[in-house]
Nucleic acid binder design. Structure first.
Length: 544
RNA sequence: GGCCCGUUGGUCAAGCGGUUAAGACACCGCCCUUUCACGGCGGUAACGAGAGUUCGAUUCUCUCACGGGUCACCA
């Protein structure tokens, strides 16, 4: 076969030469250890937590080494593309504090290794494809969908273990130049296939930075390099792009391990050096009794937008993700509570080889700890930002009563052991609702051992003696006195020893007052709460 | 079905031939305490199964089971 003629038959003669292409992509000048990573999503809709997890891995790897993290858009599948997909990716990641040093932007791009959208790079891939055709390593295939389906059926009938367009089944391999010319003249659609010389009998070892030593079989399938629209498949685009763009470390989901032999084979075929690979385990989800990979389709509640909407604070999510990313992160963070997760010396070696179950309960715990570290002002700012987008009514309340809200948020926050009540911003509304008449929805659940009569008497009397100027000691002394007067002991130890000797105790009396004033049984320290509420509101709530 | 990867308590996980098999979350109990939360102390709970190598296997090898992934003109 005259492969040169075949190449001129198949490709635009104006295609750039490889030399010309290499010239426009100078090698990156990297310092020792500096890494270049990328995120290369296809714009098929929303981002979910798994994408964020993978992006975080790449980003940490690059930035911890002083390197570059860039965004490439893999828009080779036009059918699945969703409008605004690129925007969703960039917005989603930037909301979580992950920013790119170069690559695609919502409009246009930045950086010297573009274009960063694969469809705009069609001619580059074609130039590489032409080279492969010239070398006899690729050929056009005219098989239709039906023919491929038939092929598969025959293979199944022949009980072939390995299905696919391979070896003797690859019938378009045998096409002569004349036959090809004929089909081309008829304008039959064609794809370009790689002519694989590999054999699955041949095993080779490969070291993955996360998975460790793998034993893989050579690829023997004639994979599609260029689709009938002239756009490359993932396999081909990945190989060309990650070389030209100077990626040093490819971070991707471990579902790609199966096709790794293809990629390595292609790198060898085009004579380029392959990057290092890190295949990371996907985040899992409990589905019934089994774990399964997070899925865009099945788990819309895991969309990044969901966390934002729920009011999970960015830093909390990232810290949680870090605990999944590196097993020793939690220990480090406990020792360095004031440092950012970005300071953590992340290591691929400490990554788990199998998928972690995403645990919302643990996320809540991490979040509570994180939010407890914030000042009232910091929390307020996050709340304001959040409600502005998701709860206009509440936004209006907190902004018109900002000083009051700051006081409320400060309750129990300033001591050495700050309260850990809040896991996400959406919880704050309910948490502080009793301070605001417009939100107040009391549930009057009083201690059962206190009669209605006693209860009313206690409340009415307390209304007379409450004085917001009292110190905490004076304040509590009044409650004790009130309790004793009505037959409730203020001595808790005594009460525990001999509960039947009293109607009840001061704790129960306190609960009566708390419920009457706050409309709930659980609140932070009532002395502080009452003070913040103010005399007027207290007296009003004590009126029956 | 073929191939690849994995399997330590409910969850995340240390461990890398000899350990009372860490720690965190969750759960339970006690203490602190006017409620709750925090904090402190304690507790329940794990090496998928079977062979082999070895003086000794959670750790090494094999088989099986289970789970996951992959076998597209999707990425």
């Amino acid at each position: 076969m005259d492969t040169k003629s075949l190449a001129t038959l198949l490709f635009d003669p104006e295609l750039p030469t490889l030399e010309a292409i290499f010239e426009t992509y100078p090698k990156r000048e990297l310092k020792e250890g500096e890494k270049v990573t990328r995120m290369a999503p296809s714009p098929t809709g929303f981002m979910h937590l798994g994408n964020l997890y993978a992006a975080l891995t790449s980003e940490r790897l690059a930035h911890l080494s002083g390197g570059t993290f860039y965004l490439r858009i893999e828009d080779t599948d036009q059918k699945r593309e969703v409008e605004g997909g690129v925007q969703a990716i960039i917005d989603g990641l930037s909301h979580f504090g992950l920013n790119f040093d170069e690559g695609a932007l919502v409009e246009g791009e930045t950086g010297a290794y573009g274009p960063y959208r694969q469809r705009q790079r069609a001619r580059i891939y074609q130039a590489f494809a032409r080279e492969l055709v010239e070398k006899g390593m690729a050929y056009p295939c005219f098989c239709s969908e039906e023919e491929l389906a038939d092929l598969r059926a025959s293979q199944e009938e022949a009980k072939e273990d390995n299905l696919g367009y391979r070896g003797k089944w690859a019938k378009c391999r045998a096409l002569t130049l004349e036959e090809i010319k004929e089909k081309l003249d008829k304008n039959l659609p064609w794809v370009l296939r790689f002519k694989s010389e590999g054999s699955i009998e041949n095993k080779f070892k490969f070291t993955d930075l996360v998975k460790g030593d793998l034993e893989l079989s050579e690829n023997d399938m004639d994979v599609v390099l260029l689709k009938s629209d002239g756009i490359p498949t993932y396999h081909f685009a990945h190989v060309v792009d990650d070389y030209l763009m100077g990626t040093t470390h490819v971070v991707r989901g471990d579902e790609w391990i199966a096709t790794l032999p293809i990629h390595l084979q292609l790198y060898r075929a085009v004579g380029l050096k392959a990057p290092k690979y890190m295949h990371i385990a996907p985040l899992m989800k409990m589905d019934g009794n089994t774990k399964r990979k997070l899925s865009k389709r099945k788990d819309p509640e895991l969309a990044l937008a969901f966390y934002k909407q729920e009011g999970y604070v960015v830093n909390c999510v990232m810290v949680y993700l870090m605990t999944l990313l590196n097993s020793n992160f939690e220990e480090w963070y406990a020792k360095n509570p004031d440092k950012s997760y970005r300071d953590f010396p992340f290591s691929p070696k400490k990554m788990s080889v199998s998928g972690a179950l995403f645990d919302l309960v643990k996320l809540d715990d991490v979040s509570k700890n994180e939010l407890a570290k914030l000042t009232n002002t910091q929390l307020y700012e996050l709340l304001e930002e959040y409600t502005k987008e998701y709860d206009k009514e509440f936004y209006h309340i907190i902004t018109t009563k900002k000083d009051k809200v700051l006081e409320i948020l400060n309750i129990g926050r300033t001591g050495p052991k700050p309260r850990k009540d809040i896991a996400k911003l959406s919880e704050i509304k309910d948490y502080i609702s009793y301070f605001f008449p417009e939100l107040y929805q009391p549930e009057y659940q009083f201690p059962e051992n206190i009669s209605e009569e006693d209860r009313k008497a206690l409340i009415l009397e307390y209304k007379e003696i409450y004085d917001e100027a009292d110190s905490q000691d004076e304040w509590f002394q009044k409650i004790k006195d009130l309790s004793e007067k009505h037959g409730f002991t203020s001595n808790m130890k005594e009460y525990k020893k001999n509960p039947d000797a009293y109607k009840g105790n001061v704790a129960q009396v306190s609960t009566v007052l708390r419920v009457q004033i706050c409309g709930r049984q659980n609140t932070p320290d009532t002395y502080e709460v009452f003070k913040v509420m103010g005399n007027e509101l207290i007296k009003e709530r004590l009126s029956m």
